[in-house]
């Protein structure tokens, strides 16, 4: 294992031109952080603080105005360089708030789709897809179309779709925001279980502090616009954690109030 971070942002900045005032409005400025191998990092920030802008930069959907992004030490994004393809050739996964399943593909065909276009869909990956479907309790629904599934099931499908092709880093943008409390709890536990099986490197953005504590090894907080990293909090609550009984953990209130004070 190397000490080289998997994903690193250095002095990242992004501005948009404001037509009315002829000025540059910085959404993100001087933002730096690093994700290490197998870490689950959560990111909390006030709404409108540029969380999605940051994720779009990291996912290579958008180009930074300043700073650079490194993947395994290699600079993949900087203002002066020609852009990488979105997702840096399948090396960065991105799970958004909407499930974004393809409505004309069955659940199974949806999960297999990234592998199919990457030309990697062989017997071993088919088996992996089967296992993932079973791991989130979707077996029996493989041949259902997205509209025949509940919101929680669609969300699970969209998560295992990204896990199936195994990108080294996965970004998540408030993926459970639209779910009801009950399915949210179940799917959070599913996600932790899946992560513990494979130990992917995950950056999980949320505005829900409890969720950030329940899931993360570390929680980062953002400042108000223009956003940069404000604080870092180690979540010293042992795993496996039960999301349901998190509030009874002795360390929980302290962590919660420290994060609360910053956002």
């Amino acid at each position: 294992m190397t000490c080289e971070p998997v994903l690193e942002a250095r002095y990242l900045g992004r501005f948009f031109s404001d037509r009315a005032t002829q000025s540059e409005r910085w959404i993100i400025k001087g933002l730096s952080f690093a994700l290490h191998e197998g870490e689950f990092v959560t990111l909390v920030g006030p709404s409108g603080s540029g969380k999605s802008t940051l994720l779009n930069l990291l996912a290579q959907i958008d180009r930074p105005s300043a700073g650079e992004i490194r993947l395994h030490g290699e600079v993949i994004s900087a203002p002066s360089r020609p852009g990488q393809s979105a997702g840096a050739n399948g090396r960065i996964g991105y799970i958004m708030q909407d499930d974004n399943l393809l409505p004309w593909r069955t659940l199974r065909a949806n999960v297999e789709y990234p592998l199919q276009i990457q030309g990697r869909l062989d017997a071993s990956f088919r088996k992996r897809v089967d296992e993932l479907i079973a791991a989130v309790g979707l077996n029996g629904f493989e041949n259902h179309y997205p509209h025949e599934l509940s919101g929680g099931m669609r969300k699970r499908a969209s998560i295992i779709r990204t896990l199936a092709y195994d990108p080294p880093v996965i970004l998540m943008d408030e993926p459970f925001g639209a779910l009801d409390a009950e399915s949210r709890l179940h799917i959070q536990e599913d996600l932790v279980r899946l992560w513990e099986l494979g130990r992917k490197t995950i950056l999980f953005v949320t505005h829900d502090i409890t969720e950030a504590i329940a899931l993360g090894d570390r929680t980062l907080t953002l400042t108000k616009s223009p956003a940069c990293i404000r604080g870092e909090h180690l979540i010293d609550i042992s795993r496996p954690r039960s999301v349901d009984s998190l509030v009874t953990e002795p360390n929980y209130p302290g962590i919660f109030s420290r994060i609360r004070a910053e956002v």
């Binding site: 959907i61 979105a86 991105y94 958004m96």
Partner: peptide, 18 residues
């Protein structure tokens, strides 16, 4: 077509043609 659907598929590695 929603822009996020296109983005999601692009992140999987799909080109313009795909």
């Amino acid at each position: 077509v929603g822009p996020n659907l296109i983005r999601t598929v692009a992140i999987f590695g799909a080109g313009k043609l795909e």
